[in-house]
Write a protein that binds this DNA or RNA. Structure first.
Lengths: 122, 122
DNA sequence: ACAACCCACAACCACTGGGTTGTAGGTTCT
DNA sequence: AGAACCTACAACCCAGTGGTTGTGGGTTGT
């Protein structure tokens, strides 16, 4: 993990950009699952599922602990909230524009119809 | 666009999984930009930027309109909110688990220390 | 001790993704 | 008309991704 926000975002979105991984994430968010248990749900080899789990783990979206011969994957929603927050920050660029446009319109409006009492520039 | 939610999610996250595309999205959310204007900001060919814009458009994250010889890209935050909503839905799996665990703990607690007055099963 | 099971890892393969260059067509400006 | 500009598209290259099989090692149950 490099710590660079852009790298983290790359890892997050890349991990989420596969439907199998999203499904694994759903299951794991609902409770701990072993890799082989997860693998039984998909029409692919165990190794493939292993790799998907590794990608999710590398992105910090899930964690694993060993219990005897099996490796249990679990996840909390905290990291997902971080991803959602990033999207909200992106969206704020748009909201900024909207408020900027509103400000312009208001200014224009006041230019067309100047205040009756005091002039705007003291 | 297939309309299948999983396909849409694939497209969304894949589009967001590239820092150049995220940056383009930021700029475009802040206001309309032509493709060549965008291209000037990056150390890559115009064609590469064109492709990035096409991916974002394919994912429904931005739209384009032609104005004379240039193609202006713009975006609103609505689609991004949809992505964030999807993440929140994923996270809800986790919250469900937490509330389930809380319920179990509460049940256990009441079994250890049953109510003094009325029995729980009427 | 042995079989059955779960996992890790290496090697390989087909396909996609991000990047390039080159060519060509429509627009704007002078 | 001609130059400069913006975009579109095809063809290609290389790296990475998602998938496979095979091997091997630790764990559990009989």
């Amino acid at each position: 993990m490099t710590g660079d926000p852009e790298d983290r975002a790359d890892a997050w979105f890349h991990a989420l950009a596969d439907r199998t991984r999203r499904d694994i994430l759903r299951r794991v968010l609902a409770g701990e699952h072993s890799v082989s248990t997860l693998a039984r749900s998909y029409d692919m080899s165990l190794t493939a599922v292993q790799k998907h789990v590794a990608v999710l783990e590398g992105a910090g979206l899930i964690t694993r602990r060993r219990s005897g011969r099996e490796s249990l994957a679990s996840a909390d929603g905290v990291e997902l909230r971080a991803v959602a927050r990033l999207l909200t920050e992106l969206e704020s660029h748009w909201r900024d524009r909207i408020t900027r446009i509103d400000a312009l319109l208001a200014e224009e409006g006041s230019a067309d119809r100047p205040p009756a009492a005091a002039p705007p520039t003291p």
